[in-house]
Write a protein that binds this DNA or RNA. Structure first.
Length: 313
RNA sequence: GGCGACUUAGCCAAGUGGUAAGGCACGGGACUGCAACUCCCUGAUCAUCGGUUCAAAUCCGGUAGUCGCCU
């Protein structure tokens, strides 16, 4: 019998955290964070990380498990997430995957295969240098020779993705387009519910604006300064998080703080929009339109009973 | 009340006679090891009325609005 899995996601600032705790309590669940930034220690305000008090005793995994200097990515996430889920099953609990990184959720739900090879930064750098010298089109042409299907799919300007496709070919001798095709057909090996929490765009955007204002009041600037003081640099993956790169620019004199915070608002809205695009095309999702419920309790009740149905299957 | 300047898409903004650059926002989309990343697509007849001209956002005049200076 397939094991149960509950997924709760949605755009940033939609209110996943509070719902997740209610669900975990009612169903005997433990939470695994599916968030690419909340794993990092010391990045609390900018990632709107759940606090100890908010957790209300519910165990959380993949939060504060890495240093900002370490590199976290889908492959690492997938591995650690599966480990956490094993622990949870062993304890007789139900894993609840909560977070807004759709790609990460997909990697676990459909068990996408990321081959053993490590990222080859030397090769990546050489390709990147090649693109600098010869141009993006030339790099794309290189990909066309190796993997025409990928070249058709990936826009020449999307250098980062072109490089990854080339790297895959370089390391495995196979075409990433074919690999992707195979992965795409996979079925979930869990009994699951995949909830996407949503709000009308205008409401969400207002919440985002307010949240960013709150981050400023709560001391995001000091948090970023502390990270810089401890040796973090803009080039770290962790420092590319929303809110971090902008404040770094301001602290290092390339921007004003006021403008940086405005920029964070706009970019967070863009991010939310991208998340909607992602979830809209994900199959097997259950949309939860918050505005269709009289209040949070009603929403929670609905989720609980819907999950129970799934658990009894 | 007088004089002057301005009026181009939601915002900023090129264009001064030959048939509307660009940027931002908004909206849509892609995404299989950096994903809070990276990338793609998308909008106007130029305040308004009339005139000159083969041809006007571009020249002339009226009207309206905005801003500045003066009384």
């Amino acid at each position: 019998m397939k094991r149960p899995l509950i997924i709760l996601t949605g755009p940033t600032a939609v209110g996943k955290t509070s719902l997740s705790i209610g669900l975990a309590k009612a169903l005997g669940g433990e939470i695994v964070s599916a968030d690419s930034m909340q794993v990092y220690r010391g990045m609390d305000i900018g990632t709107a990380k759940i606090t100890k008090e908010q957790m209300q005793g519910i165990p959380h995994y993949l939060i504060d498990e890495m240093e900002p200097s370490e590199e976290f990515n889908v492959a690492v996430f997938q591995k650690r997430c599966k480990e956490a889920m094993e622990t949870i099953y062993r304890r007789g609990k139900i894993p609840i995957l909560v977070g807004g990184t759709g790609f990460y959720i997909q990697s676990v739900l459909y068990d996408i295969n990321f081959c053993e090879t490590e990222a080859d930064s030397a090769y990546r750098d050489s390709l990147s240098a090649y693109a600098q010298k010869e141009g993006k089109a030339a790099l794309h042409q290189k990909l066309r020779q190796a993997d025409a299907a990928s070249a058709d799919r990936i826009h020449p300007n999307n250098v980062k993705k072109v490089i990854r496709a080339l790297e895959y070919y370089h390391q495995t001798g196979q075409k990433i387009s074919e690999h992707n095709e195979r992965q795409r057909k996979k079925e979930a090996e869990y009994r699951f519910r995949y909830y996407v929490l949503s709000l009308p765009r205008e409401v969400l955007y207002e919440r985002i604006d307010r949240r960013v204002d709150q981050m400023r009041e709560d001391g995001l600037t000091a948090e970023v300064q502390a990270l810089l003081d401890s040796g973090c640099t803009r080039s770290m993956v962790s420092m590319q998080g929303l809110g971090y790169k902008e404040i770094i620019d301001a602290l290092e004199g390339r921007d004003t703080l006021d403008h940086a915070f405005e920029k964070i608002k706009i970019e967070t809205r863009h991010f939310a929009k991208r998340q909607f695009t992602w979830f809209r095309r994900e199959r097997d999702v259950t949309w939860l339109h918050k505005e269709e419920f009289p209040d949070e309790d009603a929403l929670l009740e609905y989720c609980i009973s819907d999950c129970r149905k799934m658990l009894e299957e």
